[in-house]
Design a protein around this nucleic acid. Structure first.
Lengths: 210, 210, 210, 210
DNA sequence: AATGAATGAGCATTCATTCAT
DNA sequence: AATGAATGAATGCTCATTCAT
C-alpha cells in the first residue's frame, strides 16, 4: 500500500490521514503487532509527526477506536430514522449496521476483532458497546410496549445481548464475503430474529412493508 | 499467581502443566502481551524447558488453542447426546456450551477474545470455529428435515452464524455475571432463538419437555 | 512558568529574554535534560527564533555560561573595591560573592552545578573559574607581600583552590537556607579562613574593622 | 578502551564488571550523555544483560553512586583510625580522602562532578554527602571538646561545609595534576585549615607529629 | 520577522530464542 | 534433564534542527 498524502498539509487534515492509516494498520495487525513505523509509513509521514499530533501508541489507538465507534453508532442511529413500526426500526438499524461493516472494513476490524477485551482499552470498548446495546434495548422496549407484552429491563437485557451478538457474528460472516449484499444479509438476520427458528424452519418469511 | 508444579514428573504431565499455565497467561494477556517468561514462571520451570517440550511461542499458542477448542467441541457434542427432538438437542448443546464457558474461563478467553482474527492463527481459529458451525448447522438441518421445511445449506449457513454469535455474546454476558446460572441463561437464549422476537414480545415461552 | 516576553521588541532585548529563559531552564534541568522546546516556550517565542538569534543548543549554553560568569566576576570585583587591608578586601569579595549567589540562583546553578566537568564546555568553565581563582590569588599575593611572608605562586595556588572551594560549598549551604543572611555567612567563612581551625576551636573571633 | 571480560562468568562477578564499566562511563560522560550501549560495550557484554542484572539506567546510576560513595566513606573512616589528637585525626582523614580521589578517579568524577544536584538522584547524593559531613563534624566536635572551646552544632555546621568544600575543591585540583602526591596535597590543606590564612601568610607551618 | 510543519537520528527498553554447563 | 547466562533484533518515544510559507 502506498501513501496517499502530499507535503505540508494543515494539522486537521494530517490528523485524519494519520487516523485513517492507524485504523487500517491496527485493524489488520492488532494493537501489539502494529508498529508506529508501519502506521507512519502508511500515512506517508515520519513517526515524530504522529507523536506530535496524536500522542503515544495508546492515545492513538484510543482515538481510532473512538472515531470508528462514533461513526458506527451514528450510522445505526441515522438508519433507524423515524419509522414507526418496531420491526421496521430494527430492520433499518440492521441495514445501517451491515452497510457500515461493509464499507468500513478496517474500522469494523478495529472495533470488534482488535479491541475486545484488550487491556487497557477494555473500558472504552465496553462503554462504546454499551451505547450500542442501549440503542437496541430501546428499540426492543418500544416494540414490547407497542405489542402489549411483558415489560421490564431484566428480561430485555439478555435478549439484547443475543441480538447484538447475532448481528456481530453475521457481520463477520459478511466481512469475509465481499460479494454479499448487506441488505440481503440484514433481511436474513431479521427473519431469524423476528420469526424465530421454529417458524423459520417451517418456511415462514418476514418481509418489510415497503 | 504461584507455580503449580512439582519436580520430576513424567513428560506428558509436564506438558499439560505447561499448557495450563500458557492457557491462563494467553487467556488473560493475549498472545503478544504474554511473555514466555511469564508462562515459564507460572508453570514453575525454566524457559528452555518450554522450548524443549513445546517449541516456539507460536507453537505453544497453537497447541493451547487446539486443546481448548477440542475440549469445547467435545463438551458441546457430549451434551447434545442422543435426544430426538431438534429443539431438545439445541437446548442440550447450549447448556453444554454455557457450562464449558463458566468452568473454563481462561480457555474461553483464549478462544474467543485472544485468537479471533489474530494472525498467524486465523486459519486455525477459523477451522475450529468451522467445526462448531458444522455441528450447529447439522442440528438445524435435521430440524428442518424433520419439519419438512425448505432445505439447502446456503440458507442455513447465515442463520447458523447468527445463532452461534448470539450464544457467544451471551457467554460473555454470562462471564461478567458470576451469580447467573448457566442453565437459566441457556433457557433465555433458547426462547429467543426458537420463538423469535415477535412471539417473545407477545409473551410466548418455550419450555423443555422434561 | 509562564512566558515573560511581549511581542515586537528589538533584537538585543529579545536576546536577553531568551538568555534569561535559557539560564533558568539550564540551571534547573541541566544541559541534556533541558529541551529547546522548554526554553522557547518559557521565552514566549517559537523555536526557530532561538536558532535564528542564538544558534544551536551548544551555542546557547555557552552564551548563558559566559553571561552569568561575567556577571559573577563583576559582582566580586566590584565588591572588593579599593579598601587597603587584605583581610578587608577578602571579606568584601566574599560578601559580593554570597550576595550574587543569593540573588541569581539560576545563574549560580548553571555555573556550579550544571557546567562543572560537562563536555564540551569544560574548557569554558575552567577558563571562567580560572578568572575567579586569579582574582582571589591576587588578593592573597598582595596579602602575603604586605605581611612579608613567603611568596611564590606555587604555594598560593592550592590554597586559593581551597579557599574558593570553601566559599562554593558554603554558597550551596546558603542556597538551601533562605533565611540566612549572606553577610553573616560571609563572616562565618571569613573567620574560618583567616583564623584557622585551631584558633577558632579555642574561641578566637575575626571581626571586620568597620 | 577494550573490554576486559571473558564469557560465561557468574552473576556476582559480571555485576561488578558492569558497575566498573558504568562508573567509568558515567564519570566521564555524565548520566544523560552516557548511553547504555557504551556501558555494555565497555563491560564487554550485550545490553540485555545489563538490564537483566542491574535494571534501568536510573537503577544502574544509583547502584554506581551507592557503591562508590560507600567506598569513599570507608576509605576516610578507615584512615581516620584511632589516633587521639584531633588534628592528627583530621590529617589522617584528609590523606585517606585524597588517596581515594587519586586512585579512583572515575568514582570521584561520578560522585562530585556528575551526581551533584542531578535529579532524580539529588536525595541520594545529599544523603551520602551528609554522611561525610557528619564524619567531619564529629571530628571537629571532639576537637572543640578537647580544646575546651565553645561548643554547639550550630556553629560547627557551616565550618564543616567550608572544610569539606575546601577538600573537594583541592581534590579536583589534584585530579587534574596526576604527578601530585596526595599526601602532599593533604598537608597543604591541613596547613590552611588548621592555621588559617593569617598565620599562614606570616610563614607558620603545621606538621604532623610523627 | 516569525512560525507551523516536518524529519533524521538516536536511545532506553523488552523479548523470543539459544548455548554452555 | 534442566538451567543460568547470553544476545540479535525490534520498538516506543524524544529531540535538535530545518524548511516552506
Amino acid at each position: 500500500m502506498r501513501p496517499v498524502t502530499s507535503k505540508r498539509v494543515p494539522r486537521a487534515v494530517r490528523e485524519q490521514q494519520m487516523l485513517d492509516a492507524a485504523v487500517s494498520v491496527f485493524g489488520r495487525q492488532g494493537f501489539h503487532a502494529a508498529s508506529m513505523d508501519d502506521i507512519a509509513e502508511l500515512a506517508g509521514i515520519s513517526k515524530p509527526m504522529v507523536y506530535a499530533y496524536l500522542g503515544t501508541k495508546e492515545d492513538l489507538f484510543r482515538a481510532c477506536l473512538h472515531r470508528e465507534a462514533t461513526r458506527m453508532v451514528e450510522a445505526v442511529v441515522g438508519a433507524v430514522g423515524s419509522s414507526t413500526r418496531p420491526d421496521e426500526q430494527l430492520w433499518n438499524g440492521l441495514r445501517g449496521f451491515f452497510s457500515f461493516v461493509g464499507e468500513r472494513r478496517d474500522g469494523w476490524n478495529m472495533i470488534y476483532r482488535q479491541s475486545r477485551g484488550l487491556e487497557p482499552f477494555a473500558s472504552e470498548w465496553a462503554e462504546m458497546r454499551g451505547r450500542m446495546i442501549d440503542i437496541v434495548s430501546g428499540l426492543l422496549a418500544r416494540a414490547v410496549e407497542s405489542a402489549g407484552g411483558p415489560s421490564g429491563p431484566e428480561h430485555l437485557e439478555p435478549v439484547t445481548y443475543a441480538l447484538v451478538g447475532a448481528a456481530e457474528s453475521m457481520a463477520d460472516w459478511l466481512a469475509d464475503r465481499p460479494g454479499e449484499d448487506p441488505g440481503r444479509t440484514a433481511a436474513r438476520l431479521m427473519n431469524f430474529i423476528w420469526l424465530g427458528a421454529e417458524d423459520l424452519l417451517h418456511g415462514a418469511v418476514w418481509r418489510p412493508s415497503s
